[in-house]
């Protein structure tokens, strides 16, 4: 472990532990400790920490790690640095699922909306797989990327059309569409945590297969791995990670695209390092963005993608310029 690695891991842990103290009101360390204990007498402060801030922190950590990790897997799988889970139709599928639920006569419970977004993403991906198989004759990472982008724009257009027809759905989904952690439903936390943690475990378990895939399908056959199976397995992990995160926090596109790059420039190309770095960085960045938002007066309305993009894009450009300067 390099010192940057240790530093970032420590920063992530420290921020995760302290971030619930930030917001309006700001708590002191002592208050944070006192009011976070389950034995704390019921008071506004205890409720803020236990029912709002801690779940929010947990969701930021899980969501950030999931999106970062999924982005890393997809960029490695497709050998394309521009690939991100937002590009292959998963987000758009989740949005379509959610809008269809809102327009249906079904009641809008938190668990049901989580399921609708997740199922929407799942079905959207299945269609992408089928279209790729049909048009290319086989499943290839490039084909998935192309068909995912195509179908993604179709889902996006359908969602937009439905929202324009139905104004109240737009009001309902506005905050989710921008990406938001402002109100975490306690009942969504469980399923999200289970899916994200198992997704992360599978991601690390499938590392060797991904590395073999990167060598080409002949090499994979030679090593006794079916490249098609490996591809589908990895895509499934990407799907589960992205859909579970997006279903709760909405589509935050920036993380899946940028985090794998940051991670690679900090820790290099080795898959294990890039993957674990992406998970840690994703969690750290989303948590930092959300903590920052909570300190602004627009805490309930500003989506975390705004500070992420406003602060993240210049950093990212600087990173690219530095690398090109070094290479030329």
């Amino acid at each position: 472990m390099t010192w940057t690695n240790r530093l970032l891991c420590m920063a992530a842990c420290l921020l995760a532990l302290l971030s619930p103290a930030l917001g309006d009101p700001v708590f002191s360390l002592l208050q944070l400790w006192q009011f976070s204990l389950p034995s704390a007498p019921p008071s506004l402060e205890a409720l803020i920490l236990q029912e709002l801030r801690w779940p929010r922190t947990l969701v930021a950590v899980l969501g950030g790690a999931a999106l970062g990790c999924a982005g890393c897997l997809l960029q490695r799988l497709t050998a394309n640095q521009l690939a991100s889970p937002g590009l292959i139709g998963i987000n758009q599928g989740a949005a379509l699922g959610l809008v269809l639920l809102i327009m249906s006569p079904l009641p809008l419970s938190p668990l049901l909306s989580f399921s609708a977004a997740f199922t929407g993403a799942l079905l959207a991906m299945v269609l992408v797989f089928m279209l790729t198989r049909l048009s290319f004759g086989f499943l290839s990472p490039e084909g998935l990327l192309l068909c995912g982008a195509l179908l993604g724009s179709l889902y996006g257009a359908l969602t937009l059309a439905l929202l324009l027809i139905n104004q109240h759905a737009l009001e309902q989904i506005r905050f989710w569409l921008a990406g938001s952690l402002s109100y975490v439903e306690p009942s969504q936390l469980g399923p999200m945590a289970i899916l994200v943690i198992s997704g992360l475990l599978f991601a690390f378990a499938l590392q060797r297969r991904l590395q073999v895939l990167e060598l080409g399908s002949d090499a994979a056959h030679g090593l006794g791995i079916n490249p098609l199976h490996a591809l589908i397995q990895i895509m499934l992990v990407i799907l589960v990670l992205t859909a579970a995160a997006v279903a709760v926090i909405g589509p935050i596109l920036f993380l899946g695209l940028i985090v794998p790059h940051l991670s690679r420039s900090l820790w290099g190309d080795q898959l294990w390092r890039q993957l674990s770095g992406s998970a840690v960085l994703g969690a750290l960045l989303l948590l930092a963005a959300d903590s920052f938002i909570r300190l602004t007066p627009q805490a309930d309305q500003l989506p975390p993608s705004v500070p992420l993009a406003v602060l993240g894009v210049p950093c990212f450009i600087w990173l690219i310029m530095r690398r090109y300067a070094r290479e030329s």
Binding site: D24, L44, L47, I48, E51, L52, S182, Y183, A299, D300, Q301
Partner: peptide, 8 residues
């Protein structure tokens, strides 16, 4: 109000 923090 969007957050129950100000419920009082």
């Amino acid at each position: 109000l969007r957050s129950p923090v100000a419920i009082k």
